[in-house]
């Protein structure tokens, strides 16, 4: 059995990637299961999805902690999420990057596939949805399913026009993917074996310290606990404040739903990127046009 984990942001189609791969395998008479990381979904927040593939029926309904392959849909995630956490020794990594992929190769990898999926998605789909593009890169490195089966799965799932565009993106990505193997990689000392990743809400990594005896009656939560919940990693855009234009009116500060704008001593405002989700309300409300929403950069 082969286990795959996909990383994306809510709305980018990580779950769809996992399901398309499963559908393609099922079409070939194989067995497959795909599932999201169970829980609430928030657009923009880091999400993961999973896929199990096998030649025989699958009997597991458990979280995947140690995948053989990790696929990362969004380049802004490398800084935010430990994407290779739990990846098996000699496991495979598939990344979306515009940079030199050699920087992503660590000694433990069995292979790395890199493609500029954001560019392909923008050019063909006209949207930053990289899920099918990444599948092209995945099957280029590991022939888990035929490209044709993926195309069929796309045709079933989407209407004719969207399906054809996605098939085009899939095929282009397959062509343009760069594969690195350990032999190409000179420096063999990379990171040691990564710890377990997975969804902390389910695996309980974060809460491991509490025993039932320590929980307060009724599980009361003390005020200020969300300070620990750094929601800035949901952000795909950030507000850029222009001091030349700012008239210090404070509307951004008033309208920010997350209290992420901070009034400074000189009357100007700053942004607390630990919590700013990049919603853009400040930029919209600013009467002086002093706030611009900028895309988060890769890495």
């Amino acid at each position: 059995m082969l286990e795959i984990r996909f990383h994306g942001r809510g709305g980018q189609g990580a779950v769809t990637s996992a399901e398309l791969l499963a559908q393609a395998a099922i079409k070939e008479g194989k067995y497959a299961r795909a599932f999201p990381s169970f829980g609430p979904e928030r657009r923009g927040a880091p999400v993961s999805a999973f896929c199990r593939l096998d030649e025989k029926p699958i009997n597991l309904r458990t979280v995947i902690k140690n995948p053989h392959v990790v696929v990362v849909l969004d380049p802004s995630l490398y800084e935010v999420v430990d994407v290779t956490g739990g990846l098996r020794e000699r496991g495979h990594l598939v990344i979306n990057t515009s940079k030199d992929p050699r920087a992503f190769f660590s000694g433990n990898l069995g292979g790395l596939a890199a493609v500029n999926a954001s560019l392909i998605a923008q050019e063909i789909l006209k949207r930053p949805i990289t899920n099918t593009v990444m599948l092209g890169a995945l099957v280029r490195m590991l022939p888990l399913v035929e490209l044709e089966s993926l195309a069929q799965a796309l045709e079933e799932r989407f209407n004719e026009k969207i399906a054809q565009k996605n098939i085009q993106a899939l095929k282009r990505s397959y062509q343009e993917t760069l594969i690195l193997t350990p032999e190409d990689h000179v420096e063999r000392e990379g990171k040691g074996e990564s710890g377990e990743a997975g969804d902390a809400r389910i695996t309980g990594e974060k809460d491991r310290d509490y025993s039932w005896k320590e929980l307060p009656p009724g599980c009361i939560v003390e005020p200020g606990s969300t300070r620990k919940n750094l929601t800035g990693d949901w952000r795909s855009r950030y507000p850029l404040l222009n001091r030349e234009r700012c008239i210090k009116c404070g509307l951004c500060w008033i309208y920010c739903p997350d209290a992420s704008l901070i009034r400074k001593g000189d009357g100007f405002y700053g942004v607390d990127l630990n919590y700013c989700k990049g919603c853009g309300i400040c930029a919209r409300e600013c009467p002086a046009g002093a706030i611009l929403m900028e895309k988060e950069l890769e890495g």
Binding site: A18, E19, A22, Q23, I26, Y31, A32, R33, A34, F35, P36, F38, I58, R61
Partner: peptide, 12 residues
Amino acid sequence: LDGFLLSHTFEP
């Protein structure tokens, strides 16, 4: 049927 484990899983 078990929530998520069944309801949200894609399978044959």
